[in-house]
Design a protein around this nucleic acid. Sequence first.
DNA 1: GATTATCTGTGAGATGTCTCACAGCATGAG
DNA 2: CTCATGCTGTGAGACATCTCACAGATAATC
Lengths: 221, 221
Amino acid sequence: MRPFTDMTRAAQLPQRSVIPVNTIGRLSLYRRLLSDQLATGARQVFSHQLAALAVTTAPQVRRDLMTIGFSGSPRRGYAIADLVTAIDDVLVRSVETAVALVGVGNLGRPVLAYYANRQPIRFAAAFDRAPEKTGRVLHGCRCYASDQMTEVVAREQIHVGVIAVPAAEAQAVCDQLVLAGVKGILNFAPVRLRVPAGLHVENVDLMMALDRVAYFAHEHR
Amino acid sequence: MRPFTDMTRAAQLPQRSVIPVNTIGRLSLYRRLLSDQLATGARQVFSHQLAALAVTTAPQVRRDLMTIGFSGSPRRGYAIADLVTAIDDVLVRSVETAVALVGVGNLGRPVLAYYANRQPIRFAAAFDRAPEKTGRVLHGCRCYASDQMTEVVAREQIHVGVIAVPAAEAQAVCDQLVLAGVKGILNFAPVRLRVPAGLHVENVDLMMALDRVAYFAHEHR
DNA sequence: GATTATCTGTGAGATGTCTCACAGCATGAG
DNA sequence: CTCATGCTGTGAGACATCTCACAGATAATC
C-alpha cells in the first residue's frame, strides 16, 4: 500500500488566484470612475453610488471591495483616495509593466496609439515581420525585427505581449512570446491560443463581440 | 377561486434567452474555425477536434451544439457544412444586420476598417459631431451629422449601434441611439452605459483587458 | 448479419459567481 | 453621554455554468 492513499484530495495548490477574473475587471472600472470622482472634489463614496456609476449593484461593490480587503466606514462610506491606492496595489498599477506589441499593422497601430503613455503601462518594444518597419519609432516605441524578440524581451524585462497579427500567424507569435519569457498575453487575433497551463491569455475578439450584439439585438424586438 | 390558481409558476416568459451568452461567443468562434476547416477540404469533425481548435473541452463543444439543437452522428462526428449553416441561423448571420458607427475618430476609423465588408454585417451609416466629416464616405459608409441619427437609423433599418466616442460623451450618444430605436450596442468607450432593461450592451474595454493581463502576469511568476 | 469500437447526447453533480437580508457599528443629534 | 440612523461586512442561499461519466447509437469489420 502506497502512502497517502486515503487522501481524497491532494492539498490544493494555492496558485488559483483568490480574486475572481470578473472582480479584477470591475476593479479596473471602479478605479477609473473613482479617479473621475476625485477630480470633481469628492472624497468619500457609498457603495450604492459607486454601483450606480459602474452600473452594478451595491452588494456587488461591497463584495468586490471585501475581496481585496478594503474597508469602509458605516455612515461615511469609502475613502476614495485610499481606495484608488488599494486598487492600484491589487492591479499591478503601482509598478510599471513593460509590454511588447507584435504586429504593427492596421490593428496594431491604433492599439499602440490607444495605450500610448497610459501609466503604468509602458510599451517597451514593438515587433514586425516587415523589415522596412525595423528601427522606426511610433508613439515612443521602437520597432524591432521578430528574431530579436527573445533578446529584447529579456533586456527590457517585458512581462506582457500584445498580439495584433493575422489569425494565421498568431499561434506562432504566441509561442515565440512564451519562449521569450512573457507572463501574460493580450490577443486581438480571432483565434484561441494554446499556452502552457497557468499563463493568462486575454482575448479581445471583435468579430465575436459583434456576433453577440447582433444575436441579442434580434432576440429582444 | 380563480382558475389556474395552483400553477406554482406562471408560464415562463420566453424573453430570457435559452442560449447562454458564453455559448453565443463560442458559437461565433466555432463558426470561424469550421469555415477554415471546410476550406482545407474537411467535411466531418469530431467534438474533440473542434475542442482542440477552440481550446476548450469536448463535452463543452457537445453541450454547446446540443444547446442549439444540432445533432452529430456517432463514429462520423458532425457535418461541417450543415453545422456552419446551423450556427449562422442561431447567430443572426443568415440575415444582413445593419449597423451604425458613432464617432469617426482614432478608434472609430480602425473599427470601421476592421469590420468593413464582413458579411453579413453592413455598416449602413456613421455619425460624427465634427461637421467637416459630414458627407464623407469611408469604407463604403457615409458619414452623417449627429442630429440626423433618428431619421437615418429608421430609414436604413439599423439594429445595432457601435459607440467609439470619448468616455464623457458615450452615455449621451447611447441615449440618442436607444431613442432612435437601436436594439443592441457595442461600446468601445471605457464607461458602463445605462440602458433600458433587456437591451443588450457588449463592452470592449481595452484598458480593463490590459489591467487583467497585467494582474495575472504578475500572479503566475 | 453479428460484433466491436468509438463517438454522441445528456443527467447529475461540482464549481464558481451573484444576490439577499440582516447583524453590527460608526457617526451625528439631542 | 445616550440614542437613532443608515451604511458596511458577510453568511447563506440562489443561480448559472461547466465537468464528468456513461448509456445509447451507428458505422466499419469480419
